[in-house]
């Protein structure tokens, strides 16, 4: 971090990385609140297991695979960025964004199918939670894609601030891990 006066990075963690970890910490408690509320309802109403059987486990599994693969590509982008390989960094960032796009397309197909079967956000509280949790997650997917796109346009294309690829990657891993919690809670557990 280029700073004008000589202050010491006593923690030895660069400012950007430290800030990103705190962003993730604050996001964890947001999703934590939602997931806790869902779990409390789920334990109170066993019939939610029946509702959950109408979510598409294969589609969810496909999306899990897509997101995990995109986590790999963003890690490769970070590796390329530390080696100052601009072309490879861009390539892997585009692959990651592509993963996000596929994820959102699959999610849209799911939503459309569910809504056409009458499982709308107001059908019952299970579906309210389903749409609230996956919807909030989808917003985070979009935010992560926008962040990667901006890092590419503003910095990577000009070959500067390559450490920002790591920040975008950290965030993307977080988005991925949230899905790792949502998938069993909403799709697998019947």
């Amino acid at each position: 971090m280029a700073h004008t006066t000589q202050t010491v990075d006593i923690s030895e963690v660069p400012n950007g990385r430290a800030a990103m970890w705190w962003v993730i910490a604050s996001e964890v408690v947001i999703f934590g609140g939602l997931i806790m509320s869902y779990l409390l309802f789920r334990m109170r109403y066993p019939q939610w297991g029946e509702y959950a059987s109408h979510t598409s486990t294969p589609m969810g599994a496909l999306n899990t695979l897509v997101l995990l693969t995109s986590s790999l590509t963003v890690a490769l982008a970070h590796k390329a960025a530390t080696e100052k390989n601009i072309a490879a960094t861009k390539k892997y960032l585009w692959f990651t964004i592509l993963g996000g796009v596929i994820f959102l397309i699959v999610k849209s197909v799911e939503y459309t199918t569910e809504i056409s079967h009458g499982y709308t956000i107001t059908a019952n509280n299970f579906w309210s939670f389903y749409y609230a949790m996956t919807g909030l997650h989808a917003i985070h997917v979009i935010a992560g894609m926008v962040a990667m796109f901006l890092v590419m346009q503003i910095d990577v294309n000009k070959g500067r601030n390559l450490h920002r690829v790591e920040m975008a990657g950290l965030y993307w891993h977080f988005v991925d891990i949230v899905w790792i919690f949502l998938f069993p809670l909403l799709y697998v557990a019947k």
């Binding site: 604050s26 996001e27 408690v29 947001i30 934590g32 609140g33 939602l34 509320s37 909030l136």
Partner: peptide, 11 residues
């Protein structure tokens, strides 16, 4: 503040 506010944002 950071650890307390999350659940309320969800709520």
């Amino acid at each position: 503040f950071m650890f307390a506010v999350g659940p309320l944002i969800a709520g």
